[in-house]
Deep mutational scan, measured.
Amino acid sequence: NQESVVAAVLIPINTALTVGMMTTRVVSPTGAPAEDIPRLISMQVNQVVPMGTTLMPDMVKGYAP
């Protein structure tokens, strides 16, 4: 099972992602793949992402898996 990126903390809208904001988990439906964490760092979210929420590609500005 592939791990997806999950918010480790509450991420406010327009916040640039840091490694400490993200964790990985096997979830369904799958979100952004765990191996993309290095690409996701410094990208901004376009909505509030509550802690424990799977990071879906459409939540991150300019990100395409």
Rank of each mutant, 00 (worst) to 15 (best):
Q47L: 08
V26P: 07
I37W: 04
V49D: 00
A7G: 02
T24I: 10
P33Q: 03
P57T: 04
R25I: 08
G62D: 11
M51I: 10
A16T: 11
T18S: 11
G20L: 12
Q44T: 14
A7L: 07
M56E: 03
D58Y: 15
V27R: 13
A16P: 13
V60N: 01
L55E: 02
N1M: 14
R39P: 03
P65W: 09
G31M: 02
N14T: 08
S28D: 12
V49M: 01
L40K: 00
P38E: 09
Q2N: 12
V5Q: 00
G20I: 10
G62T: 04
M56W: 05
Q2M: 13
A64D: 11
M43Y: 03
I37P: 04
L17C: 07
V49E: 03
V48H: 11
E3C: 12
S28E: 11
R25V: 08
K61R: 14
G62I: 02
P29D: 05
S4K: 02
A32D: 04
M22N: 06
K61Q: 11
L17S: 03
P12F: 09
M51A: 14
G62P: 04
V45G: 02
M22W: 05
T53Y: 12
D36Q: 03
I13T: 11
L55G: 03
R25Y: 08
M51C: 13
T53I: 08
E35G: 13
Q47P: 02
P12V: 09
A16Y: 15
V48M: 15
V49G: 02
P29I: 04
R39S: 06
A32I: 15
G52P: 02
K61L: 10
A32P: 02
T23H: 08
M59W: 04
V9H: 03
N14H: 14
T18F: 07
P33K: 06
I37N: 02
V49Q: 00
I11Y: 00
A34N: 01
S4I: 07
L10K: 08
T23A: 11
L40Q: 00
T15W: 08
M43H: 10
D58P: 01
P65E: 10
M51Q: 13
N1A: 14
V19K: 13
M22Q: 07
V45P: 01
Q44G: 02
V45L: 07
G52W: 08
N14A: 07
G52V: 04
A16I: 14
G52E: 05
G62A: 07
P38V: 10
T54D: 01
N14D: 13
A64V: 15
V5K: 00
N1W: 13
P57A: 10
M51G: 05
Y63F: 05
V6K: 02
V45H: 02
V5C: 07
A8I: 08
D58N: 14
L17N: 06
V9R: 02
S42C: 11
T18E: 12
D58A: 13
T15Q: 03
M22C: 08
T24E: 07
A34G: 09
A64N: 14
Q47D: 02
V45W: 07
N1R: 13
S4G: 00
A16M: 12
R39V: 12
A8L: 09
V6Q: 01
G31P: 00
N14I: 09
P29Q: 02
L17G: 03
G20Y: 13
D36N: 02
V26D: 07
S4M: 04
N14P: 00
A64S: 15
A34C: 09
S28I: 13
N1T: 13
P38I: 09
N46C: 09
I41L: 10
N46Q: 06
P12M: 09
M22E: 07
G52L: 07
P12H: 09
G20W: 14
P57Y: 10
D58V: 07
V48A: 14
A64L: 14
T15H: 04
V27D: 06
A34Y: 01
M43R: 11
P38T: 09
S28K: 12
A7W: 08
V60L: 06
T53F: 11
V6E: 01
M22G: 06
T18Y: 08
G20E: 15
T30M: 15
E35W: 15
T18V: 09
P38A: 10
L17F: 06
M51E: 14
N14E: 06
Q44R: 14
P29F: 06
L10V: 07
V19H: 12
S28F: 15
V45A: 01
A34T: 06
Q2S: 12
P33M: 05
M22V: 07
P50W: 09
V49Y: 03
M43V: 04
I37T: 02
I41N: 01
V9F: 05
V27P: 05
N14R: 02
L10A: 06
I37G: 03
I41R: 00
E3H: 12
G62V: 01
V60M: 04
V5Y: 04
V60W: 07
L40A: 02
V5T: 01
Q47W: 09
G52I: 06
V60G: 04
V5H: 02
K61C: 12
T30S: 14
V60Q: 01
P65C: 11
G31T: 00
G31Y: 01
V9I: 11
I13E: 13
Q44C: 15
R25S: 10
R39M: 11
I11P: 00
R39N: 07
E35C: 15
V5L: 03
I13C: 13
V45C: 04
Q2T: 12
N46G: 05
E3K: 15
V19C: 14
T18H: 05
V26W: 13
A7T: 05
D36Y: 04
V9K: 06
K61P: 11
G52R: 01
M43Q: 04
A16K: 13
V48L: 13
V6P: 01
A64H: 14
A8E: 02
V19L: 15
G62E: 06
G62S: 04
P29N: 01
I37Y: 00
P57K: 01
I11W: 05
A16L: 12
M51N: 05
A7C: 06
E3V: 11
D58Q: 13
E35T: 13
V45D: 02
P38F: 11
A8T: 11
L55V: 05
D36L: 04
T53A: 15
A7R: 00
R25Q: 09
V26L: 14
S4H: 02
A16F: 15
G52K: 02
V60P: 05
P29E: 03
G62K: 02
D36H: 05
M56T: 08
T53W: 12
Q2E: 11
K61M: 12
V60R: 00
V48F: 09
P38Q: 10
M59N: 04
Y63Q: 06
N46M: 09
N14F: 11
T53D: 10
P38R: 08
M43I: 06
A32K: 01
Q47C: 15
I41M: 06
T15L: 06
I13G: 04
V5M: 01
I11V: 01
A8D: 01
V5E: 01
A8F: 09
P38M: 10
M59C: 06
A7I: 09
